[in-house]
């Protein structure tokens, strides 16, 4: 197990390096020199040249990339062009609000999706199943920024139950969390349903019922426990995704998180902030995904066995097919 974690961590390094390169490459495509954001309009040639020399804007892409990695290893993601604040510091400042939103959203999604998914699976092909699937289809299709606006109109402006924006009091998380949670709920409901459908038909369910376990107890104790692993896995992946920053929800609700700061940085063309935030977002996503995988392996003994035999199995094409399927 320890070896697996180390191996996975080592595999993460090239991915992060790749992400940094891709982000660097994309940002390099931007027309115009970043100097224009940093100097006043009537700056002299010498002043401009001094800034170019200081930041090394004239160096080739690979040199700047190498320098960036070197700084990154020292915990330095550069400074914002506009506020001169260190990017890492700014990121950590904003991460709290994003984490708060992400965790509330995923909890809300799980609370909504578990009963829906279980109910849909139990009532498979009946109208109740159809209704649950319609709810999940709606959640999957609704653009969350529009949902956010509609919630603001109804619950903040007309009914006045919740504040429309910001993060001043505890209650202000309700609308953003619901907005962000709806999409996650839709996906989790589908995962729960299909996972439950698999376990509900298993032989041990028949055994349990034959032993006299009630229908509800058999579903909750026997089927759900076995169906939980893919559900937990899917929730973890979703959490990783929203932890990177929910740009749209944060923008709609003026939530002071990472996503909104990113949009502000884009408006200001503040390249170090954009680059740093994208890289941190990808890193956090990757780290959470890795944690989920490790927990997953820990919980499910079948996967642990797979790791032990992975080396041998990898050689045969059949194992590869199964893995892909």
């Amino acid at each position: 197990m320890g070896r697996y974690i180390l191996k996975r961590l080592a595999m993460l390094i090239p991915v992060i390096l790749g992400v940094i390169f891709v982000v660097f490459f994309i940002m390099d495509l931007a027309p115009g020199s970043p100097v224009n954001q940093m100097v006043s309009e009537n700056a002299t040639e010498e002043e401009i040249q001094a800034i170019i020399d200081e930041y090394g804007f004239d160096d080739p892409l690979l040199v700047r990339y190498g320098r960036y990695i070197w700084d990154l290893l020292h915990g330095d993601l550069g400074r914002s062009y506009t506020t001169k604040q260190p990017v890492l510091e700014l990121y950590l400042q904003k991460l709290g609000a994003t984490a708060q939103l992400a965790i509330s959203a995923i909890l809300l999604a799980m609370i909504m999706s578990l009963p829906l998914g279980i109910y849909a699976a139990v009532k498979q092909n009946k109208w109740q199943d159809g209704a649950c699937m319609v709810i999940s289809l709606l959640g999957l299709s609704i653009p969350n920024f529009w949902l956010g606006l509609m919630l603001i109109i109804l619950f903040a402006l007309h009914l006045g139950w919740f504040p429309a924006s910001g993060n001043r009091e505890l209650i202000s998380i309700v609308l953003p969390a619901f907005t962000e949670g709806t999409g996650l709920m839709a996906f989790l409901t589908r995962t729960t349903r299909s996972s439950m459908l698999e376990t509900i038909r298993a032989d041990y369910m028949v055994t349990a019922r034959a032993k006299g376990v009630t229908r509800v107890a058999s579903v909750m104790k026997h089927a759900l426990k076995n169906a939980l692993i893919p559900i937990v896995n899917a929730s973890g992946m979703q959490l990783a995704y929203v932890m990177a920053g929910s740009v749209l929800t944060e923008t709609v609700f003026a939530w002071p998180g990472v996503g909104r700061q990113l949009v502000i940085a884009i408006t200001d063309r503040d390249i170090p902030v954009i680059t740093g935030f994208l890289i941190m977002g990808a890193t956090i996503t990757a780290l959470i995904n890795l944690t989920v995988d490790i927990v997953y392996a820990y919980v499910d003994p079948r996967i642990k066995v797979q790791y032990a035999t992975k080396k041998k199995a990898k050689k045969t094409p059949k194992a590869k097919e199964e893995k892909a399927a």
Binding site: V15, G18, V19, L29, A30, L248, V263, L278, A282
Partner: peptide, 24 residues
């Protein structure tokens, strides 16, 4: 597939934002 991993590591809205903000 490793290149794919890199693209997958970036949340898609981030990639899109980066591309539009760079290209205009």
């Amino acid at each position: 597939m490793r290149f794919n991993d890199i693209l997958l590591a970036l949340p898609s809205i981030f990639t899109a934002i980066a591309i539009v903000s760079a290209l205009g």
